[in-house]
Amino acid sequence: MTHPIMFDDADPVLRRVRELALSFPDAAEKISHGIPAFYTTKVFAYYGGSIKVDGAYQRHDQSLLVLLDPDERRALLSEERCYLPAYLGPYGWLGVDLGPASDWAEVEELLDASYRLTAGRRRVAALDARGRG
């Protein structure tokens, strides 16, 4: 069964996330479970997530899902804008609600951290060679 598309391609927040995510070496985009997924060999970010509340899913359409080291994830979970996404939360992923007024430098840092955990040594070396990080 194909998942329905659960995002608006004209969403300006998605456009900004897409621009940042695709700037990483060898990064590409695909649709996974109805939402944009940014990946190299492995996915390093998703746009859009959900949480399960009383047996129903509550959507967080304008959010970024990233994989972080446990200490960083724990620190961010104390913030109201952050959540453990359904399905991926138990595997180290964190959801961060975004909006037009988001701190885009922070979003880029979160993408960078997640990319470094998933992209492999060669791609991380290419990232560092560009003077990023």
Rank of each mutant, 00 (worst) to 15 (best):
A28Q: 10
D26A: 15
F38V: 00
R59H: 13
D97K: 07
D9L: 13
E106D: 11
S50K: 09
R59V: 07
P70K: 05
E80A: 12
E108Q: 14
K30D: 07
V53H: 14
Y39T: 00
M6P: 11
W93I: 04
L127C: 10
V107D: 13
M6F: 04
A101L: 03
V96Q: 04
R121F: 04
W104D: 09
E108W: 13
T41I: 10
R18A: 15
V96T: 01
R116K: 05
F7K: 01
Q62G: 02
E80T: 14
A37W: 10
K30Y: 03
A119V: 05
S78Y: 10
Y39C: 13
A27K: 05
R121K: 06
H3T: 04
V96M: 03
P100E: 14
R122V: 05
A27H: 12
E79L: 04
Y39K: 15
P36W: 00
T118L: 12
A113T: 00
E29H: 09
P70L: 05
G95W: 05
R74A: 15
T41G: 11
Y115G: 11
G34A: 02
R116C: 00
H60D: 06
Y87N: 09
S63D: 08
R59M: 09
Y39H: 15
R16G: 07
A21L: 03
H3Q: 02
Y46M: 07
K52M: 10
R130H: 04
R18N: 15
Y115S: 02
G55N: 13
D103P: 00
R132H: 10
P4V: 08
H60Q: 01
L111M: 05
R116P: 08
E29I: 11
D103A: 08
A105D: 12
A10T: 15
F24I: 10
M1A: 12
P12M: 04
S102L: 03
D71E: 14
P90N: 08
A21S: 12
A113Y: 09
G95I: 01
Y57D: 12
G55M: 11
S78W: 13
S23M: 02
M6G: 06
E109A: 01
K30C: 03
T40K: 02
F24P: 07
S50I: 03
L77R: 13
G55V: 05
Y46L: 15
Y91L: 12
L77A: 11
Y91W: 01
G120Y: 11
L127Y: 06
S32V: 14
A27L: 07
A56V: 14
A105W: 07
A125E: 15
S50A: 13
D128I: 04
Y83G: 09
Y83K: 03
Q62C: 09
D69F: 09
L77G: 14
V124C: 06
Y87M: 08
R18C: 15
P4T: 01
A28L: 08
A75K: 11
T41A: 13
E106L: 09
C82W: 03
P70Q: 05
A45C: 01
F38A: 00
L77C: 15
A37P: 04
V43P: 07
I51T: 10
G89Y: 06
A45N: 07
A86N: 15
G120I: 12
V43S: 07
A119K: 05
S63M: 09
H3R: 12
H60A: 04
M6C: 06
R74H: 13
